[in-house]
Computed example of a mutant assay.
Amino acid sequence: MSQRVVHPMEKLQRQVNSLVESKVLKPSDRIWKIAFLYGDDWSHWKRELEDFEFTMQDTIGDLLAVETWDDE
């Protein structure tokens, strides 16, 4: 039985999706709004998002639309 390693960005995506489902965030909100929820960890996640060519002006819906996270 093989276990798939979950990419850290997939974990972030799941957490953000959960916040959307619970109406804390909306898909039309900008990614920078996540900063308020991640506090001290935000600088790490901001760098990760920028590495995947996201800007803080992109929408949360854009983040949720990613199907696979590949480090290449």
Results as ranks from 00 to 15, higher is better:
Asp40Gly: 10
Trp32Ser: 12
Asn17Pro: 00
His7Gln: 08
Leu63Ser: 02
Ser18Arg: 07
Gln57Leu: 11
Lys33Tyr: 09
Val5Trp: 09
Asp58Cys: 06
Gln57Val: 05
Thr59Asp: 14
Leu19Lys: 03
Leu12Asp: 01
Asp58Ile: 04
Val20Glu: 00
Asp71Arg: 14
Ala35Leu: 02
Ile60Gln: 01
Glu72Asp: 10
Val6Gln: 11
Val66Tyr: 04
Ser2Pro: 13
Lys33Met: 15
Lys23Phe: 01
His44Asp: 06
Val20Lys: 00
Glu72Asn: 05
Glu67Ser: 07
Pro27Phe: 01
Lys33Asp: 03
Glu67Lys: 10
Ile60Thr: 07
Val5Leu: 14
Asp29His: 15
Gln13Met: 04
Ala65Pro: 02
Arg30Asn: 14
Phe52Leu: 13
Gly61Arg: 07
Val20Ser: 02
Tyr38Lys: 13
Arg47Ile: 10
Ala65Ser: 14
Ser43Phe: 12
Ser22Asn: 10
Val5Met: 08
Leu25Phe: 11
Leu19Phe: 04
Val16His: 04
Ser43Cys: 13
Glu21Ser: 05
Ser18Gln: 05
Asp62Phe: 07
Asp40Asn: 12
Lys26Ile: 05
Met1Asn: 10
Pro8Thr: 03
Leu63Gly: 01
Trp69Phe: 07
Phe36Pro: 02
Ile31Gly: 02
Trp32His: 13
Ser43Asp: 14
Asp40Lys: 13
Asp62Ser: 14
Asp41Met: 09
Asp51Lys: 10
Leu63Val: 03
Arg14Thr: 14
Trp42Ser: 06
Ile31Val: 15
Ile34Met: 15
Trp42His: 04
Gln3Phe: 09
Ser28Ala: 15
Glu48Val: 15
Glu53Asp: 12
Ile60His: 08
Leu12Gln: 05
Trp69Cys: 03
Leu63Ala: 01
Asp51Ser: 10
Phe54Ser: 00
Gln13Ala: 00
Leu37Tyr: 15
